[in-house]
């Protein structure tokens, strides 16, 4: 097995990872998460025992970094003893982005990631499953539930 040069991964998948992170944490925090994602990937790269579905692998790391970022944002916003659960960020659009994206960002973590990976990145369900570290059925369900919820909110708005 031989892994491609790391720069080739960055060239091929940098844009989708960044776009995923903008959708997940917003344009302001996306650059930090982007750096954390690729540093973590580079650190783990030598020990990777497969060269398949590297995009899914990268997006899974990005998803974890997005969750970390939400948690630390929640910790900054509220005293830790009072709220153990991470609070969803308010659906406020940033920098003139379409309001829809603020709503996507406010979805539960798995739904948000699943909706993004399926609709924006256009990944097959098998790859969504790799990125979310879940079964293909669970990936499908998360996409479906996320879209349902967005539809309801948009009708309600």
């Amino acid at each position: 097995m031989s892994l491609p040069p790391f720069q080739a991964l960055l060239d091929a998948h940098g844009a989708v990872v960044h776009r995923f992170l903008v959708a997940a944490v917003g344009p302001v925090d996306a650059d930090d998460c982007f750096q954390e994602t690729w540093i973590a990937a580079l650190r783990a790269y030598d020990d990777l025992d497969h060269a398949e579905n590297l995009r899914g692998w990268l997006l899974r790391i990005a998803q974890r970094k997005a969750i970390d970022s939400h948690r630390s944002a929640a910790r900054r916003a509220l005293p830790a003893e009072r709220l153990p659960e991470p609070a969803a960020p308010p659906p406020e659009p940033v920098d003139g982005e379409p309001r829809l994206w603020a709503r996507v960002r406010a979805l539960p973590e798995k739904q948000r990631a699943a909706v993004f990976l399926r609709t924006v990145a256009g990944l097959p369900y098998a790859e969504v499953a790799v990125a979310l570290d879940c079964s293909r059925d669970a990936a499908r369900r998360n996409v479906h539930d996320g879209l349902q919820r967005l539809r309801k909110e948009l009708i309600g708005a």
């Binding site: 844009a15 960044h18 776009r19 903008v22 959708a23 344009p27 920098d95 003139g96 982005e97 379409p98 829809l100 994206w101 996507v104 909706v115 609709t119 924006v120 256009g122």
Partner: peptide
């Protein structure tokens, strides 16, 4: 979801 994204913010 698919369309306005690139053009507007990415």
């Amino acid at each position: 979801l698919r369309q306005p994204y690139d053009a507007t913010i990415h």
